[in-house]
């Protein structure tokens, strides 16, 4: 082995080699470009959809969001495009979904992080992963062909129980079919459960073991430990998870379109058919033209704006909660 030949010339050149720096710079610009794509696409979505929806906004003005009638082909007079019923439908189905999914998701997350024996833990995680993997259209298919027909009788039973009772009698009114706000809410609940569960799991996972040990060492039962050590640490994270779930529920299109009933309806009766913003778009887009199309795209603009705002707020809350956790541990 002749390592003596490795003696460098007395003044080795340390100047950059040709091309080397250029390649480095080109590569970093290229990656930056791909990163900027995200911002570009979001900006383009906003610009293009607002531009296309503009004719409908101009024609309807403020009535676009305050008018409950949506009549593209009236017997007489100009078409009316009022999105209020659909906004109501979106709100009410999402609310039902969250009321069911949030407690269930928190429960599953607690099961996975705090209660489950090692064996069952993996199975529970698999259940949630599978739930997330099933495409929403399959839930919709199951909802419209299997669940909805079964639920009609159940809805009628519930109505009989509450009929005559103020408020509840109205909310649980007559059920004509299984396709209504309630069924849509139930299907949505199944679909937002995985997302809320997975975030809650992460949040619960950040609770310091020392805190939990401290609670248990004081003689707390497992539930008291969860209430005393896990929940106080996780409030912000859970709020963020709920908001992300809300964003998902509002934007879900296909499954809702199949089970919500497809009628323009603003009714307190959860057992009546209705529609949501996302579902209307996919149901009516194919048959629309001109201002009608613009009005449907307008629904997309409203949906986009609301989901972006909700997601931004949720990310902020989750991040702030995480930062606080880290600060608390350090």
């Amino acid at each position: 082995m002749t390592l003596t030949e490795n003696k460098p010339e007395t003044r080795p050149s340390l100047a950059p080699q040709k091309g080397g720096l250029l390649a480095d710079r080109a590569f970093s610009w290229w990656t930056l470009g791909t990163g900027l794509l995200v911002l570009g696409i979001l900006a383009l979505i906003l610009i293009t959809t607002v531009r296309e929806a503009w004719p409908a906004f101009v024609e309807m003005g403020f009535r676009y969001v305050t008018e409950r009638t949506w009549d593209p082909n009236p017997a007489e007079g100009a078409p009316i495009f009022g999105a209020l019923s659909f906004m109501y439908g979106t709100a009410v189905t999402s609310l039902i979904a969250l009321l069911i999914a949030v407690p269930v998701s928190i429960g599953i997350a607690l099961f996975i992080t705090e209660l489950a024996p090692r064996r069952l833990r993996g199975s529970a995680i698999t259940v949630i992963d599978l739930l997330a993997a099933v495409p929403s259209v399959v839930f919709g298919l199951w909802g419209v062909l299997v669940l909805a027909p079964i639920l009609v009788d159940f809805y009628r039973g519930v109505h009989d129980v509450f009929s005559g009772v103020p408020v509840l009698g109205t909310i649980f009114g007559e059920a004509a079919s299984g396709r209504n706000f309630m069924t849509a809410g139930l299907i949505l609940a199944i679909m937002v459960t995985p997302i809320i569960t997975s975030i809650c799991r992460e949040v619960f996972g950040t609770v310091p073991q020392a805190d939990k040990d401290a609670a248990l060492a004081l003689g707390a039962t497992r539930w008291e430990m969860i209430r005393g050590a896990v929940f106080p640490h996780s409030f912000g994270g859970i709020t963020g998870a709920v908001m992300l779930g809300l964003g998902r529920a509002m934007g879900e299109t296909i499954a809702v379109a199949l089970v919500v009933g497809g009628s323009t309806n603003l009714s307190a009766n959860l057992f009546e058919p209705g529609n949501t913003m996302a579902a209307v778009i996919v149901q009516q887009f194919g048959e629309s033209t001109g201002t009608y199309t613009a009005a449907l795209i307008g629904l997309g603009v409203v949906l986009f704006g609301m989901t972006v705002l909700i997601n931004l707020a949720a990310q902020r809350i989750v991040r702030r909660a995480e930062a606080r956790m880290r600060g608390g541990v350090a």
Binding site: P8, R11, P12, S13, A15, G20
Partner: peptide, 15 residues
Amino acid sequence: YHGQDIYAKDVDPIQ
């Protein structure tokens, strides 16, 4: 390094 300032402007850290 061999009389050259390795922090000089024209020096490439890679080299």
